[in-house]
Amino acid sequence: MSDRPGGESVAVTRTGTGADPGTDLQIIESLARGELRVAARLISRIESGDPAILPLLAALHARGGKTPLIGITGPPGAGKSTLVDQLIFRYRQQGKRVAVLAVDPSSPFSGGAILGDRIRMNRHSADEDVFIRSMAARGRLGGLAIAAGDALLVLDAMGWDVILIETVGVGQSEIDILRHAHTVVIVQTPAGGDAVQALKAGVLEVGDIFVVNKADAAGADRTVSQLREALSFRSDAQEPESWHAPVLKTQAVEGLGIDELVLSIAAQAEFWRSHPQQRATRRRLQTRLLLIDQIAETLHQRQQAGDRQQRFEQLLDEVLARRCDLHTAASRLLDHAMK
């Protein structure tokens, strides 16, 4: 990395003016040029649920899918942000430009949030080739994964060399978000009891790489062997031509084990390249689940509009009064929504 006299480097030429971003085509061109403020504003519009950007998102989707997306999740306090910081550092050493989407699905009552993950990545704050965006839940139920996916479309259109998606493991939302990722890294810390019991349902199935961080703490080796054993029972573990999820040890604070993680991520990408069939199966499964999510979200949004909201509440009353069952109510709602 270059020495920066004055210690300051602001991406002046790439911030844009912040004025009217222009037509969708102009926006796409701005994104391709890496105009950060255009991208940042667009993500804000996604976050606020602005329906006017749907055609643009469709255009981005048509052109997208080029950038490797690496998902990183784990429980609070597992050291994810520090691990992400170390990954950024290694990728920057390789000359790669990195974008990070840090998603916090925790949703306090007030609808507010404190997004503090950037602190642990502060050493990259003056590096214009690192873009970090934080995203809060805003009280969305299933919609967070969709908003995150749309934000990833924007980042994908900007020509970053790698995109990292960090989420905190507090519920189903982060597993949903990971459906956008090409490589999924699950971070754990040495557990006191049964490490696999401590994993939430579904997490074991979606991980491509498992990391036991804070590996100098007591119980690290036991956690590693417990994870390895559990992974050996995974459905794909018996197939010779499938990716076998490794379990790695890291000490993110000290930067130990990060090289191995970087290599492992690269090896996983290489596996997808050399196994297009498996890759297609995986993408199909992920996209299938995303589409199901999207159907629910679209329906949900349509129900918010005017008389439909009222109709929904009426049907709900019917169900509560046992004049109508759940199956019938859902069918009626769907039929109506399709019109």
């Binding site: 403020r37 003056a126 934080s134």
Partner: peptide, 29 residues
């Protein structure tokens, strides 16, 4: 306290440079 009032706070902590604050301000909109 701002979180309690419904604000999304992006907390950068201590020891920032002007450049770092501005890059965060842009990325976070």
């Amino acid at each position: 306290l701002l979180r309690d009032r419904g604000v999304e706070v992006i907390y950068l902590g201590e020891h920032n440079t002007a450049g770092g604050v501005i890059n965060a301000l842009i990325a976070e909109d």
